[in-house]
Amino acid sequence: MTELPGYRALRKRDFRASRIGAFGSVKRQKVLLPRKGLSRSFFIGSADNWFLDLEIVAGGREAIRNAVSIEWSFTNSFGKPLEIGDQEYTDYLFADPVGFSSPQRVWVKRPRDAVFAVAKISRLIKGVDVGMSAKLKLQKSLLGSGEAKERLSRDRATLGKLLVQATEEKRYCDAGDILARMVYLWRMPEDRRLLEACIDARKLIEQDFRLPVPKQSYKAGQCTWEYTQSLSGNLSADGLLSRWLLSEVLLLIANLKQQKIKTVVVKGNGLLLGRTLALTLAQRACNEAFEITREADIPLLEVEQVSQFISLEEVYSYL
């Protein structure tokens, strides 16, 4: 006896209908999800922007994270399976308490050449009945609902789109809020890293790039040094800017002091803006004891951003 009234167990004929893409295509189905999963085929053709709306419920008073997974696989027009990464093509859904469920949108990320898709819908949690209520028919995207409403969504694609918009429009406070919601909803390390990078970058701006570097006594000689690459290695897009900057500034100071450098020539392309920023900070820590020159033909601000959560203008105003 299920604790979810109105939801029925899947029958053999449901699985058969699923394989040929018929199950739930006409009428909304309310079924209990099995652990081994229900594989439902879809024809997706060459169009993008398909989605499914599903309501997932379970007993209890709280929503359960990652209660259901949808693993996508794809075949081309000849029925040949396409090789895709598991993680990227797996969606995880919440199970809401009965009476409090809302549709959760799942987007079909169509790989190139894919014509058919199979969604394997599985219950991930043990010992609890999980029900799905959905019409298993792909729908086309109808964008245009208000951002405020979209930001309360549990649709990762929608939140991801809002995040990109916010960073492109330099609304970093909004970007932080969206990321915080994504971290709360999915607890994914990559979201958390981005959120940390965002907060760290904004804090650096607020504190006028103040880093814990003690003032240095520095006696320059006559040497010139070409600064062609980062001494701290790469700064990844979701790494903390403050960490990289501090490490780079400390290594720069040590290196320059040891060689008694008088002039530093900034060269090379990698992390040009970041390196210039680090060099400026090092110069200030050393009471401007060395000079910085830059090759005139390098368009500094067009090479790369220091961090996606800091605008070029903000860095430039500091340099």
């Binding site: 598991d86 797996t90 994914m188 390390p189 940390e196």
Partner: peptide, 13 residues
């Protein structure tokens, strides 16, 4: 499904 890693599981990010 693949096991998900969560940031609050003590994963070093």
């Amino acid at each position: 499904s693949a096991v998900m890693r969560h940031w609050d599981d003590g994963v070093d990010l």
